[in-house]
C-alpha cells in the first residue's frame, strides 16, 4: 500500500516534459482574449456579481463554463445558479483528488526503481489542478443545467485536505442526496446538513475512500498497469525495441507490486 503511494509520487516526480501545467494553462486561457461565448458570458457575469469575492476562478472554453468558488460559498453559489440562472436540472456532483497519479505518460515503462524526488510544483500548494485552477488537494464539483436555456455550468470548490467538508445542497436539489453519499463514500468528503451520509455502493464495514489517489487498487499490486504493458509496438513494426521494453515493464511491475 505504502509502496504504491510512494510509486505514485515518484512517477509524478518524473514529470511530463511536454505537457504543460494545466493550472498554468487555465490561468492563461482566462486572461487571453478568447472569442466571447454569448450564452455563457452573461452567466459568468451574473455569478460574479452575485458572489463577488467568493468566486475565485472561472473559465469559458470549448462551449462550457467552469466556476470555482470558495468552499464556504458553495451553497450560495448553487443557490445563485438555481435562482438567478434558472438551473433546474441537477446533473451530478462528485469530487476530484489532485494528488499526483502514477503518471502513465511519463515514460513507456514505469520504473519503480527510479529515485523519488520532490513533488512537481503546481500553481499552488504543490497540487497541479485543472480548469479554473485550485489550491488544495481536493475539489468538489457539480454540474447544473438549465433545460430552458440549454446551458450547463460546472461549479468547483477547493476543500481542505485534512477535513474535506462542504455544505450539503440536498435541500436545494433533492437529487444531490445520492451523489453526496457517493462522494462521501468514494472520496471521504463530508457534507454538512446531509440527511444521512451512509454507504451507497460499498458494504457498510468498508474502510477507506476508493477514489482517493492514495487508495491502492489491489489488482495493480499483483499485475502491472495494463496500460503500459499493452502499448507495445505492433509486430513487424519495430519501434525502439518496444517489445523488449514491454516485457521488462511486466517484470518490473510485478516486482514493484511485491515491495
Amino acid at each position: 500500500m505504502a509502496a504504491d503511494a510512494a510509486a505514485g509520487e515518484e512517477a509524478a516526480a518524473g514529470g511530463t516534459p511536454e505537457a504543460e501545467s494545466p493550472a498554468a494553462q487555465a490561468t492563461a486561457t482566462t486572461e487571453a482574449p478568447a472569442p466571447v461565448d454569448e450564452r455563457r458570458q452573461p452567466w459568468l457575469e451574473a455569478l460574479q456579481a452575485e458572489l463577488g469575492e467568493a468566486l475565485v476562478g472561472h473559465e469559458i472554453a470549448g462551449g462550457d463554463v467552469w466556476v470555482r468558488v470558495d468552499s464556504r460559498a458553495w451553497r450560495r453559489a448553487v443557490v445563485a445558479c438555481r435562482d438567478r440562472l434558472g438551473c433546474d436540472y441537477f446533473c451530478f456532483l462528485s469530487g476530484l483528488d489532485w494528488k499526483a497519479d502514477v503518471d502513465l505518460a511519463a515514460e513507456k515503462v514505469w520504473d519503480p526503481e527510479a529515485q523519488p524526488s520532490a513533488p512537481a510544483a503546481g500553481a499552488n500548494g504543490g497540487y497541479r489542478t485543472g480548469v479554473a485552477g485550485g489550491d488544495t488537494r481536493f475539489q468538489v464539483f457539480a454540474r447544473l443545467f438549465s433545460t430552458s436555456a440549454k446551458v450547463g455550468i460546472t461549479l468547483k470548490a477547493d476543500l481542505d485536505e485534512e477535513d474535506p467538508r462542504v455544505e450539503s445542497i440536498v435541500s436545494l436539489y433533492r437529487g444531490a442526496e445520492w451523489h453526496e453519499r457517493e462522494a462521501w463514500e468514494m472520496l471521504g468528503f463530508t457534507f454538512d446538513g446531509h440527511p444521512g451520509l451512509r454507504h451507497i455502493y460499498l458494504p457498510g464495514e468498508f474502510e477507506g475512500h476508493p477514489l482517493r489517489k492514495d487508495f491502492p487498487l489491489l489488482s495493480r499490486d499483483v499485475k502491472p498497469w495494463p496500460g503500459l504493458v499493452d502499448v507495445e509496438a505492433m509486430p513487424g513494426e519495430p519501434e525502439g525495441g518496444g517489445d523488449a521494453e514491454g516485457a521488462d515493464a511486466e517484470g518490473a511491475g510485478a516486482e514493484g507490486g511485491e515491495g
Binding site: 511530463t16 511536454e18 505537457a19 504543460e20 494545466p22 446533473c91 451530478f92 462528485s94 476530484l96 483528488d97 497519479d101 503518471d103 502513465l104 505518460a105 511519463a106 497541479r128 485543472g130 464539483f141 454540474r143 460546472t154 477514489l211 496500460g227 503500459l228 502499448v231
Partner: peptide, 19 residues
Amino acid sequence: MGYYVVSKGGLGPFRTKIR
C-alpha cells in the same frame, strides 16, 4: 449519459466521472 474526463497529458485519464 456523460463523462467528465480529466486529463493530465497522460496515456490514460487522470480521473473520469461517469454520469
